[in-house]
Design a protein around this nucleic acid. Structure first.
Lengths: 150, 150
DNA sequence: TTTCATGTAACAAACGATGTTACGTTAGTG
DNA sequence: CACTAACGTAACATCGTTTGTTACATGAAA
């Protein structure tokens, strides 16, 4: 099954942007993500509509983060992307007339609802700032060493 | 994203089979499920390989449940189907060279792992017998009323 | 031996995510 | 004012996966 990787992609983009203080163009982000600039605009556009980033046109334009990194959670990003379905398995029909299928749907639905609640709760507990800090913690020494060499 | 509905489908088939004491043909099941007999054989074949059902050819042939309904859990069915991916969202690449993406993957992976563990635990706690009983509880009165009318 | 059934391979259709092209719009630069 | 750099967006192409379908082989019972 083909997985939706946009959440992973926007995280990747946002963390790269957080490492800089100048805007990043769609072309630059596309190169980071190994994709096409139009795909970047399409996906980042959803974050713009949610007020998380801004895009400036023309010279020296590009994408900038417009929200507080300590306030933005994975859940907000998930919502900004339109809350795509989290599960790759599910019921055959959502409102079946067959009584057997109604029982099955009820059983599966509660299981999936519980798992979804847990997942969203985890999403809510992770901020962009935490991820950025995690990055610095894991690779900060590496980077500062390079900076000293330069 | 297109959802894998085979777990739901085999549950539907098994519960219909549990309601009878004679084998059901692929054509009969296909009619129940609104699909094609070959799809039924393809999917039920996985359950046969797992030892959960048997298939007899020729006259009066068809599919029969060969396992104890109180022992078969949703998790076993999920495994019998080859443990298809449960989530529709995920990482862009599983082993990225980009350090940023490694941090993102780590964060997402733990969240998804926790949710998957919960979901599988729920699957493990539901037996076919429990679903069948649930069916009888919810619709048994309805059925016996019909039986009396007939 | 005919009919009913599964087993399986090969192919077709449908769908969704992603990639691409094309063109429009806006903003800075010379 | 023309030029260039960037986003905005619609339309189309591509790719992979799931599901549906056809065709044919195999086995069992009447």
């Amino acid at each position: 099954m083909k997985r939706d990787s946009r959440l992973s992609a926007v995280l990747h983009a946002l963390l790269h942007m957080a490492e800089r203080d100048t805007p990043m163009t769609s072309d630059a982000l596309a190169q980071c993500l190994g994709t096409h600039p139009v795909v970047v605009r399409r996906t980042m556009g959803l974050l713009r509509e949610a007020g998380l980033v801004t895009a400036d046109r023309g010279h020296a334009g590009g994408w900038r983060i417009s929200a507080d990194l300590t306030k933005v959670t994975l859940r907000q990003l998930h919502e900004a992307l339109g809350e795509p379905a989290l599960f790759a398995v599910g019921n055959r029909s959502e409102h079946p007339s067959c009584l057997v299928e109604q029982v099955i749907n009820a059983a599966l639905d509660t299981a999936f609802a519980d798992a979804e609640a847990l997942l969203l709760q985890r999403f809510e507990s992770v901020t962009l700032a935490a991820l950025a800090a995690d990055f610095t913690r894991r690779h900060g020494a590496h980077r500062s060493r390079h900076r000293h060499e330069a």
